[in-house]
Design a protein around this nucleic acid. Structure first.
Lengths: 216, 216
DNA sequence: TGTCGATTAGAGTATATACTCTAAATAGAG
DNA sequence: CTCTATTTAGAGTATATACTCTAATCGACA
């Protein structure tokens, strides 16, 4: 593992643990036993570390939604979108916790984030649309009913891990994350085919029982 | 207006404008033309300024929901809950933007916030329950259907102004805030009596046309 | 073995911020 | 007008953090 990767790994860990602003360059360097000069050899400045982490988040997130968007959407796949994306948001939770300040100080990062967000909302909407096309849900009323569902899904997704952390749950388990997925499911429940819903939920509970809580 | 109040007003303005961490004690003092010594005469430390601001937010929020929770809930009242609470969240937007870091550094504030949050979720749930009791909506399925609606309402409420700011909309208008209320309404649409819904939405659009965008 | 580029160490700089301390100004009561 | 408590000014301290700079070390390859 190269020092560059070790820096990124340590930065991620420290930022997740203590918040992005608390993870100074000297802390990161110290955490892996290298000098500050070494760190600055690999990254022009602190911003670049955060940006590199975001790039990974960005790529992983797009891969999760893109790889699986192909019709029709099975209950397992549907649940898979959320299981993997929530796991991702947990692994990069520092980012969502400090989002506002991070974007404020780095215009390029802000633009990249907004691109991702716009794409995500579109994609979440298209997933819901696909469910309707597949005959697994009745379309919501109103011309922008799909759009609203996609947006609300995004709002809950991007906020859930922050909510869990803020709420002060002492040790966060997989169950806490799955609960967030349940909140998103509840958005769709009124429209969703009960059988499809039940199968999707079964995937969640199975995930919960088989793979014991292994959240960092 | 006492210097103490001027400090709070300036702190709120600066934190809203540039984010909580950017509003240092010296900036606040300079903004209203007093010395740092003077500021520290009125507040033991910076934390106390934030805490004083939160206390106001806390009191105002509880007043909005409590004052109006009495059965039955008219469409006007229902819309009023959200209009006023969203306006409040906008006025204290620094808080929601920096929530995670603020709570991390101040355990007392964290506890106070969690108390408010727990109360809010309970209250939002009870509002929805009341709508059902009034016959204005059909109850959601599931034993915790009401709870889930209350929680999702809270998640969108606490995240909306942050979402708007993060999204980089150049000048935020009342329409942006009302859009957030629309997102919450959409949560309830599947259950809500169409007539009730239509009347509530009319209150929103009226609010939008009469009182021109006067945010900030 | 020698050389040259990539990597690393670590001391040092510049800057910002929270906060303290002492003395001066001010205000209100008698 | 005077005395006392409240309020204010402003210089100063302690600390932390991002970042720089120079020299040393390492490693691959001729």
């Amino acid at each position: 593992m190269s020092n560059r990767d070790r820096i990124l790994a340590a930065a991620l860990e420290l930022m997740n643990a203590d918040g992005a602003p608390a993870a100074g360059t000297s802390h990161i360097a110290q955490a892996i036993g290298i000098s500050p000069g070494n760190l600055y050899y690999h990254f022009k400045n602190r911003e670049m570390i955060v940006r590199a982490l975001f790039d990974r988040l960005d790529a992983e997130f797009r891969a999760i939604l893109v790889a699986d968007v192909s019709l029709p959407i099975s209950p397992t796949r549907f649940a898979g979108f959320y299981l993997r994306s929530f796991e991702l948001s947990w692994r990069y939770r520092f980012f969502f916790g400090g989002l506002h300040h991070l974007l404020r100080k780095d215009a390029a990062l802000a633009q990249a984030y907004r691109d991702l967000q716009a794409w995500a909302i579109d994609t979440l909407e298209s997933i819901v649309r696909q469910l309707a096309d597949d005959g697994n849900m009745t379309p919501p009323r109103g011309s922008d009913g799909f759009r609203s569902l996609g947006l609300n899904t995004w709002l809950i997704w991007m906020n859930w891990v922050r909510f869990v952390q803020i709420s002060g749950r002492e040790d966060v388990t997989k169950a806490d994350v799955v609960e967030g997925i349940g909140q998103i499911f509840d958005l769709l429940v009124p429209y969703l085919d009960p059988i499809f819903e039940e199968q999707a939920r079964r995937v969640l509970t199975k995930e919960l029982t088989t793979q014991k809580d292994r959240q960092n």
